[in-house]
């Protein structure tokens, strides 16, 4: 979580300096969801991500240096600079993948889960999505089919109260997305998304059930993005009182307090130091990496055939 926060702080700073092309969507305040859920998963389990995916990437084990290289559009990025921060994929880490079409990865995630079911595999798929995505048609198509076929999926909705600038109360007639699970024949679990341990526990149960073939779960993690939609956000719609209340529930500070009871004195500071070192090295790696040569734009349109008997 600390690594994610530091990465985002570094990205925002560099964006302000004009050193990054695209806007950055930070998940600050929401780190406990991505990190808590991915901590449950095995490497061969798949996740799909969103425009707000830094915690998902780091949680699924991607190298921070190569994530940052991708965001800087560098040749050493996971997608050789072709994806940028919203579309990152890493097949070897089970991130397939980022998507900046709201809700767009949900039908794909159930397809991945369908694949695992047909193959008789015990792999599980976890699509992350926002509260805004719960109002798009694809969400409903995907949950219906996942519930119907008992696919091994755990849907994780990061409810951060806003879809871009519009508050959830102006987007949905129901406060909790989790209630929709009932209509699709699966459990709907509401969890405090700023409590990493609670998120981990909820995800562990749901993932274990999916792995045993018991079908999907919808987890709704209640959380908040502390600094607005993205670096392009001009603000003015999040009440100051609301922001202050959520800042006092910062998931990193909460986890720190919880861990302070369990860990030896000084250990937490040492971990923070390691996180800082990791992120500094990652930025150095990304910034020192070369940009791809322009000819790479002509990379092949199609995958080459595998021969007539593929």
């Amino acid at each position: 979580m600390r690594v994610v926060r530091l990465i985002e702080e570094g990205l925002v700073e560099r964006f302000r300096e004009g050193r990054i092309r695209g806007p950055i969507h930070t998940c600050d305040g929401q780190e406990a969801v991505g990190i808590g859920v991915t901590a449950v998963l095995e490497r061969q389990d798949l996740i799909t991500s969103t425009h707000r995916g830094h915690a998902h990437f780091i949680g699924k084990g991607l190298d921070p240096g190569r994530v940052l290289a991708e965001i800087f559009g560098k040749e050493t990025g996971y997608c050789r600079g072709r994806a940028g921060h919203m579309l990152i994929a890493s097949a070897e880490h089970g991130l397939l993948g980022g998507s900046a079409i709201v809700g767009g990865a949900l039908p794909i995630a159930i397809g991945q889960a369908l694949g695992f079911q047909v193959q008789g595999s015990d792999r599980v798929v976890v699509p992350f999505f926002g509260d805004g995505a719960a109002h798009i048609g694809m969400f409903h198509e995907a949950l219906n089919i996942a519930g119907l076929w008992k696919l091994p999926v755990v849907f994780v909705c990061e409810h951060n109260e806003y879809g871009l600038t519009v508050h959830a109360r102006h987007q949905s007639p129901v406060e909790d997305i989790a209630v929709r699970a009932e209509g699709y024949g699966m459990p709907g679990i509401k969890v405090d998304g700023n409590d990493a341990v609670a998120v981990y526990r909820a995800a562990a149960d749901a993932v274990a059930g999916a792995r045993r073939g018991e079908g999907p779960t919808l987890i709704e993690a209640k959380t908040y993005r502390m600094t607005g939609f993205s670096t392009s956000d001009q603000g003015g719609y999040q009440p100051e009182k609301e922001m202050a209340a959520w800042r006092s529930r910062d998931p990193i500070r909460r986890l720190r307090r919880a861990l302070a009871k369990a860990l030896a004195k000084g250990r937490l500071d040492a971990l923070d130091g390691e996180a800082g070192e990791t992120v500094a090295q990652a930025f150095a790696y990304a910034e020192d990496s070369p940009l791809p040569p322009a000819e790479e734009a002509y990379a092949e349109e199609f995958a080459p055939p595998r021969g007539p008997h593929a």
């Binding site: 794909i108 995630a109 159930i110 798929v125």
Partner: peptide, 19 residues
């Protein structure tokens, strides 16, 4: 079900994992 977006998406996802 009658769900064209899901049909297309499932084809993509299932293809990605080896079907």
């Amino acid at each position: 079900p009658i769900a064209e977006q899901a049909i297309a998406g499932m084809a993509i996802g299932a293809a990605m994992v080896g079907l």
